[in-house]
Amino acid sequence: MKQRLTALMYGWLSIIILLILSSIVLAIFLRFTSLTNPLLDQLAVIIAFIILFISGLISGIKAKQKGWIIGIILSLSYSLMIYLYQYLGYGEQFTLAQILYHLGFLIVTIIGSILGVNIVETRKTNP
């Protein structure tokens, strides 16, 4: 149980750090290039998928077992935080497109955490 909580904390920490770094990079690109808003939206979604995959991978490596559970918990907690921010901050519900994005986030995070567990298992069996 403690190992799973540690893995989730590492996953959340990686999500926060990577989101801050990507926000800074996107802000710099927006300021100093001719990046347009539709392109920025697509780029932000792609970066979000990559961030959740990497954080799922890190969580799976730290958990060392049951990566799919870690991926589900990490992704659902991320979606809950986004929903609470959107609902409490702006008074808006998820749209159908956002629900589909978050289902994609769920799948990507689960795949990342499963791969993270299997990377650890491969290292143990093949010295």
Results as ranks from 00 to 15, higher is better:
residue 87 Y to K: 14
residue 2 K to S: 11
residue 46 I to D: 06
residue 74 L to W: 01
residue 29 F to C: 09
residue 102 H to F: 15
residue 12 W to Q: 04
residue 75 S to M: 06
residue 58 I to W: 05
residue 16 I to F: 11
residue 56 G to Y: 04
residue 44 A to T: 12
residue 64 K to T: 00
residue 11 G to P: 03
residue 50 I to G: 15
residue 17 I to D: 10
residue 32 F to L: 10
residue 50 I to D: 11
residue 65 Q to H: 08
residue 39 L to K: 11
residue 106 L to T: 06
residue 116 G to Q: 00
residue 23 S to T: 14
residue 48 A to E: 10
residue 76 L to K: 04
residue 97 A to E: 08
residue 75 S to L: 03
residue 104 G to V: 03
residue 110 I to R: 01
residue 49 F to V: 08
residue 48 A to S: 15
residue 116 G to R: 00
residue 62 K to E: 05
residue 47 I to S: 11
residue 73 I to T: 07
residue 71 G to H: 06
residue 113 S to A: 13
residue 110 I to G: 01
residue 53 F to S: 01
residue 33 T to E: 09
residue 109 T to A: 08
residue 87 Y to V: 08
residue 76 L to R: 01
residue 124 K to N: 08
residue 57 L to M: 05
residue 97 A to L: 09
residue 85 Y to D: 08
residue 65 Q to M: 03
residue 92 E to K: 15
residue 12 W to N: 06
residue 112 G to L: 05
residue 97 A to K: 05
residue 21 L to S: 12
residue 60 G to A: 04
residue 3 Q to P: 09
residue 32 F to A: 06
residue 75 S to T: 01
residue 102 H to D: 09
residue 12 W to G: 08
residue 9 M to Q: 03
residue 68 W to R: 05
residue 9 M to K: 01
residue 43 L to R: 08
residue 103 L to Y: 09
residue 101 Y to V: 06
residue 19 L to V: 12
residue 9 M to E: 00
residue 125 T to F: 05
residue 13 L to D: 05
residue 41 D to S: 14
residue 112 G to E: 01
residue 5 L to V: 10
residue 105 F to W: 10
residue 109 T to N: 07
residue 82 I to R: 12
residue 23 S to R: 14
residue 100 L to I: 04
residue 94 F to G: 01
residue 25 V to A: 15
residue 100 L to G: 03
residue 48 A to N: 14
residue 9 M to S: 05
residue 95 T to V: 08
residue 32 F to Q: 09
residue 9 M to Y: 03
residue 89 G to N: 11
residue 23 S to D: 13
residue 40 L to M: 13
residue 40 L to H: 14
residue 122 T to Y: 11
residue 92 E to M: 15
residue 87 Y to D: 13
residue 84 L to D: 06
residue 7 A to W: 02
residue 48 A to M: 15
residue 54 I to W: 07
residue 25 V to P: 13
residue 122 T to V: 00
residue 119 I to F: 05
residue 30 L to A: 15
residue 47 I to K: 09
residue 127 P to C: 03
residue 93 Q to S: 13
residue 116 G to T: 00
residue 123 R to F: 13
residue 54 I to H: 02
residue 107 I to S: 02
residue 80 L to R: 04
residue 41 D to E: 14
residue 22 S to F: 15
residue 91 G to A: 15
residue 55 S to D: 11
residue 76 L to P: 02
residue 26 L to C: 09
residue 94 F to R: 04
residue 31 R to F: 13
residue 100 L to T: 01
residue 12 W to D: 02
residue 108 V to C: 06
residue 93 Q to C: 09
residue 28 I to P: 04
residue 42 Q to F: 13
residue 82 I to G: 14
residue 68 W to M: 07
residue 27 A to V: 01
residue 47 I to C: 10
residue 20 I to F: 12
residue 107 I to Y: 02
residue 120 V to L: 06
residue 14 S to N: 05
residue 14 S to Y: 02
residue 22 S to E: 12
residue 64 K to P: 00
residue 66 K to D: 14
residue 34 S to R: 11
residue 96 L to K: 02
residue 68 W to L: 07
residue 57 L to G: 01
residue 87 Y to T: 10
residue 38 P to S: 02
residue 31 R to V: 07
residue 123 R to L: 06
residue 27 A to R: 07
residue 51 I to A: 11
residue 72 I to M: 07
residue 121 E to F: 07
residue 86 Q to M: 14
residue 65 Q to L: 06
residue 24 I to R: 06
residue 55 S to A: 14
residue 20 I to R: 04
residue 109 T to Q: 03
residue 106 L to C: 07
residue 54 I to T: 02
residue 60 G to Q: 02
residue 11 G to D: 03
residue 55 S to M: 10
residue 12 W to H: 09
